[in-house]
Structure formats: C-alpha cells, structure tokens
Computed example of a mutant assay.
Amino acid sequence: MIGKTLWERQLHQRGSASAVAVTEDRVVVHERHTRLVCLDRYDGSVRWDVPIGTWPRAVVVAGDRCLVLAHDTDQLSCLDLTTGAVVWRAGLPPFSGHVVATAETVIVGGWRGYTPMAAFNLKDGRPLWRTQQPTATVLPLSWDGGVLSGSGSEAWLIDPHDGRELGRWRLPEPLADTDHRPAFTLVDPDRCLMPCGPRSVVAIQLSSGLVDQFFRHDSDLLASAAEFTGGVVWLSERRAGYLAVDPGDGSKLWNVEVRQPLVSGVVRDGEGFVVVSEGGVLFRLRSDGHVLERCSSVTGVVALRDLGAGEMIMVTKGTLRVITVKPHSDAL
C-alpha cells in the first residue's frame, strides 16, 4: 500500500480546496456549513471552532492571522490563528472575491471584475487604498514584496501598501480564465509561470521584464496554474493525465496517463511522486513518471496537498484525510 490513514475528519458538507488552509502544524477548514475549525496537523484534534458564515470564497493563513471571506456576509474576517478570536472585520461590496496577503497587507477583490480591489492593514484592518473602478484579475500572487495580478493580455505588479504600479507585462495570448483557482506559479524568485490561451504557458521575469513562451502543447490544457513539485513543472491536460515539464528549458519530460481524471495536487515521495484520481485511486510514480503502484482510497476526491515529512492531506466530498506515504518496496 502507498500508506495508511493517520486521521480523518467528517466535514458534514462537500469539501472544497479553497476552504482549506494548511500550515506547518495546523489545518484550518470550513465545515458544517457555517463553522471554521482549526485542527492539529498531526492528530486532527480541534484547537478552536468558531462561526464564520457559509461557503467561504477564500481561507488564507498569513503569519499568525487567518483571513476568511464568507459568501453570505460580504465581510473579510481576520482571526487570531492561535485562538480563533476575531481580530478585525471589514465590510466589502457584494460578490467580492480573491484574497491575497503579504507580510503587512491584505488585498481583496477583482474576482470576475465584479468589484474594485482594496487593501487593508493585516494587523488592525485599517483601509489602505481602493481602486476607483471595478477591476478584473485572476487570483493575485504575492511576489517579491509586490502583488502580481492579471487579466486579458496583461499582467501587472502593484505595491500592496499604496496600490501604485511597479511593473507591467504584455502577454502573447490572453490569460486563461482560472476563476477562483490560482493562475500564477513561481518556479524561482525571479520567474513566474501563467497559463495563456488554451495550450500555452508563459514565463515572465521580474528582473529583466522579459516575457517568454515557456511551453506550448499540441492539445488543450486545463485552465489552471502549473504546479511546481520536486523540481518538476506539472501541467494538467484536459484529457485525463498530467504533463511533466523541465522548469529550466520548458522541454517535455513525460506524460502521466492513467485513463482517469486526476485532481489537483502532486505529492513528493522520496525520488518519486504520488497523484490521485477523482475516483480515489492513489498512484505512486517513479521519478520518470512511470506508475509503480496503485491503490484505492475513497471516492469523490477534490484535491491533494503535500504536508511534507512523508504525509499528505486529501480533501474529499465530505472529509479531510491525512495519509502517510510509505517507502515503496515492489514495483507493479
């Protein structure tokens, strides 16, 4: 077997990757329709349990703060990560979405172009700035002290403290519409990848301002951010499978074709990797992508997260499950 279950928690609702945040020793998850719960990362015991509202559009941990944007309250709530106590709340326009935090600020808004983007002081919730008009952007990313945003054929970097523009890039194709999911992937401190058009991944370089086509596929890719795990860039194909790409030159390394839709999340397993299908089948891969082992777990898997130390967390339609990744002994 690939591993054993260390602990499992019933959510009493459908699990969502955007409603789970993981730190070194905590897992924060939305459950039971209106509750936000902080669990011990190692044994699943409850550290705190507070009411927060329904179906959060984002749960983000930033240092000793937990930021939650609930669907029904039009509020950004900042909680103390240790106790769950409310530190501050900020009212937002209806249909606000996207939350990104830096060391000192929180930026919210821009989802589907419904609302302006606005920034708040992370410590006390003090408003810092707001765009004059609704702004469309994919999910922003904190990058080198700035915040990277993008829409259409442009990406731009802003100063989180005052909203002024620090840099702008013209893209060869429009950014893929990833909705509430991540769009940007850092592969090193100076280089960020983003999906553009139906088949391309573009790299932008912070120091030089260059925009290069990193990879172009011969069939459509999913509209989602690349994953960077174990020194490999992972791209999701529209048909079942992952495509592995060299992060240096963008050359194709291998395909992972298991004839089952795979969920987001690649876990490092020693020299190899683990992926999981929507049907709950775990696949152990060799370092060249060859399938060594497979085993059935649970159905209705939503996402997989690497916890490090040979462990991973699986989000399903109704549970959280933490699983060990045991060293493999025999190939298939």
Rank of each mutant, 00 (worst) to 15 (best):
R32Y: 07
S208Y: 04
V28I: 14
P174T: 07
P134Q: 14
G265T: 00
R191P: 01
V68K: 03
F215P: 11
P261K: 06
P116C: 08
A183D: 05
E24Q: 08
L235C: 06
E165Q: 13
V301R: 00
G272M: 08
L128R: 09
L222T: 07
W156D: 10
S296R: 12
V60A: 04
V258T: 07
V201H: 05
V138S: 05
L292M: 03
H12I: 12
T83S: 15
D162S: 04
S142Q: 13
L304V: 12
P51R: 14
G167D: 09
Q13F: 04
V325G: 00
L175K: 06
P182K: 15
V315R: 00
D188R: 06
A119S: 12
H12P: 08
L292G: 01
G110W: 05
L292Q: 02
F215G: 13
S18T: 15
D218E: 14
S16T: 11
G308T: 01
W111T: 03
S207D: 14
S96R: 11
L285G: 09
V86H: 05
W88D: 04
V256T: 04
G270E: 02
H71W: 15
T83H: 12
P127F: 09
D246G: 09
Y114Q: 13
Q13T: 10
G231K: 09
G152A: 14
R181A: 15
R321I: 02
D144P: 07
S18D: 15
T23H: 02
T83E: 10
G230K: 02
S149I: 02
Y242R: 14
C38F: 01
L175P: 04
L186D: 04
V291A: 05
T34Q: 11
H328F: 13
H33A: 12
A19K: 07
E278T: 09
H161A: 15
G15C: 02
Q205N: 12
A203F: 10
L186T: 09
V37Q: 05
A309W: 03
G272C: 10
L141F: 09
W156M: 11
T178V: 06
L122A: 07
V258G: 01
A90N: 13
T131M: 06
D177E: 12
H290S: 12
C192M: 13
V275Q: 02
P134Y: 12
R238E: 15
P261M: 07
E173R: 14
T316G: 12
H290L: 07
L148G: 03
T82V: 08
D188L: 03
T105V: 13
A203T: 14
D177F: 06
A90I: 09
R238N: 14
F228D: 08
L210F: 13
